[in-house]
Design a protein around this nucleic acid. Structure first.
Lengths: 372, 372
DNA sequence: CTGTTTTACGCAACCGATTGCCTTTTATTT
DNA sequence: AAATAAAAGGCAATCGGTTGCGTAAAACAG
């Protein structure tokens, strides 16, 4: 009897280096920073660690009462699962990686916010990385996220990215990749986007309906399909209203920055035949256009109507307030997380992409309101 | 001879469940998604895994040549360390946690950006969590970050936080906690802040020097020391210039939101003896004041000079451009990371906090420029 | 009262890197 | 040349949770 009890007591203690370890660990357990593991629960209740593990995740092969008892004891002891251990064993963490160009931009930080909210609600953590719009950084960050065994990634391409091979490592390991906004067109993946073409079409159409005849467009880097689609929407809207696109009014920028916008506006306004409207692919450049025009004494919207894209906070502050196109960043982040979490349940077919398209709307403010 | 070779070949293969495993693993290794581990390198070069591990981190007990050979082979085989395994063993990851109220705010997203840049440069990842200015979320997020074994955290308190016990778990485990901006005053930790008192003093002084006699202040929640210090700086500046602080001009807000600012401004302007200057604890409320004043036909800065705090992008867009106080968010993020990375080298004394204070400057723009 | 299924749980390998201690070999000292 | 020190590397335990397989006992069927 004595032996049986003794054996029982030792049954699930971990293999130890030293003979005296049992005593030592008892002492240890008095220290406050001792962390509780499933082995401690196992010892407490005389179950095996496997039973504890299963009970904690409500595995059906463990009895109802046992499960309850174990879960209560776990709570009583203040057990906190070591996710590193589980991740190592499963070769997958519960971290979602985010790969974007720059965190401190309104659209992106709202996107991240959306991802974070929904990820955390589901018990996942969020790892961020920014490439600073640099291709090499993007590749390095993709490696780093891969190495930390993220269970999925949300990505928006850098301005420089043309080759997307660095995402293939994820796809090969069946790690879901969700591209948002700036997405590649030739990779088997999830995509969460807006209909850039029709958004641009509607924005341009709005300017036309306000009486603009010569509408300029600030286009972004054309290898990024968001900007290409916006440009196409712009051109097709013009054509639909029998306006011949004028090459001089199509300004291709590389970053759509404040400076680029300012300079472009300056040139446009100095033309012998200046535009009476500008549709910018982002709000930053649009705001710079407004400020430059005002400085030059050009009346907005009477002489120059302006509409931007994104609905950044700036848009409602600038004067006159900037008309723009809504870009549901937060929502896009939430949907991206959803795609990743759902992915576990299904098998993605090779060569198939799942695309989620969100609605946008033209937000009309003073900068383009010429009628009435 | 035959046996010796055979033994040698098997020497470092992991313990396997099945007899036929050796063949099987050879087949496996042809699959492209086989991941290379130190065991593979060990087998390749006939060294033990421990030697590989040491060589890869340039441990001095491994010979120079051996180390070189191992590192080259590692590269050749495309070895990528499994940080989960290392983290489990060391009970610490190389993830830095960020705990803030809201990601999509200019100051915060720049702060995160600074943390991310410097962390990644040092080979660390960044985990984010936002509390939405809710105390319970903050506590839960702290738990989550703790559970994922971050090696340090950067935190800025939520508006609601009064009790900071949820940070003690980190300190007990010697995990460095760096508070930024909204810091507690009674916790043994690192802090990266600006001198809020003197920044506010200087901002208020600036308004006085521009001829303001009745200066109002938009104060934030007073249990957060940033806002309390700004209020104190404001009051002391007034006193220094023999202006008696008027209680009616001291508006305590809870969130310093656009709406709160608008409402407060409206009330102030309706007073029989309205203020001729406003020093706001943030730019959002300051901008709302400008807009509200303009709408009421109050001239800025002639009838009402306004200065904000933070230098958000909005500040230079609003018209007239908002004077404000710079808040080096990016820099603060970088310094926070630095504190965490340095922490490993030193021992923090119980009861001692290390505080880093950054310079700020008053940025004078049109909204407060009354002279000349 | 046997034979079969189900229930409930234990065993031990496993994930991959790290590290204290030990052994063997080589270099240095007296 | 003997003794000591230093260099180079291996052994095996360890971190903590997970899981395929095996088994004893209980429930059920016949």
């Amino acid at each position: 009897m004595y032996f049986a009890l003794a054996l029982n007591d030792l049954k699930f203690s971990r293999t130890q280096h030293f003979e005296g370890q049992v005593e030592r660990s008892k002492i240890m357990s008095k220290k406050k920073n001792k962390v509780v593991t499933i082995y401690d629960i196992a010892n407490e209740l005389n179950y095996s660690p496997s039973t504890i593990s299963r009970a904690l995740k409500n595995h059906k092969s463990i009895g109802k009462d046992t499960t309850k008892q174990i879960q209560e004891t776990a709570k009583k002891l203040g057990y906190r699962p070591n996710s590193l251990a589980a991740s190592l064993r499963n070769n997958r963490s519960n971290n979602i990686g985010i790969l974007i160009a720059r965190i401190n931009r309104p659209f992106i930080s709202s996107l991240i916010s959306g991802v974070e909210n929904s990820a955390r609600a589901a018990g996942y953590n969020v790892l961020i990385s920014q490439s600073d719009d640099n291709y090499k950084n993007e590749v390095a960050n993709a490696k780093a996220l891969y190495d930390s065994r993220v269970c999925g990634i949300v990505a928006s391409l850098s301005m420089e990215t043309k080759n997307v091979d660095h995402f293939k490592q994820f796809i090969e390991q069946d790690i879901p990749v969700v591209f948002v906004d700036r997405v590649p067109s030739d990779l088997n993946s999830y995509r969460v986007i807006i209909d850039n073409y029709s958004a641009a079409y509607k924005a341009t159409e709005h300017l036309i309906q306000q009486g603009c005849k010569r509408i300029a467009h600030f286009a972004g880097a054309q290898h990024l399909n968001v900007y290409k689609l916006r440009k196409n929407g712009y051109i097709d809207a013009l054509k639909a209203y029998d306006i011949t696109p004028d090459k001089d009014l199509l300004i291709c920028m590389s970053t759509l920055s404040f400076e680029e916008g300012k300079e472009a506006t300056s040139k446009l306004l100095n033309m012998k035949n200046p535009p009476d409207g500008i549709f910018s692919s982002n709000d930053t450049a649009a705001v710079s256009a407004i400020m430059e025009a005002k400085q030059k004494g050009v009346k907005i919207p009477e002489e120059l109507a302006v509409i931007g894209f994104n609905d950044d906070p700036l848009a409602s502050i600038v004067e006159p307030a900037l008309s723009t196109v809504s870009h549901p960043a937060m929502k896009m982040g939430e949907l991206s997380t959803k795609r990743i979490l759902e992915h576990a349940d299904k098998k993605m077919e090779k060569g198939v992409s799942e695309i989620t398209i969100l609605d946008t709307e033209v937000i009309v403010r003073a900068s383009s309101k010429r009628l009435k």
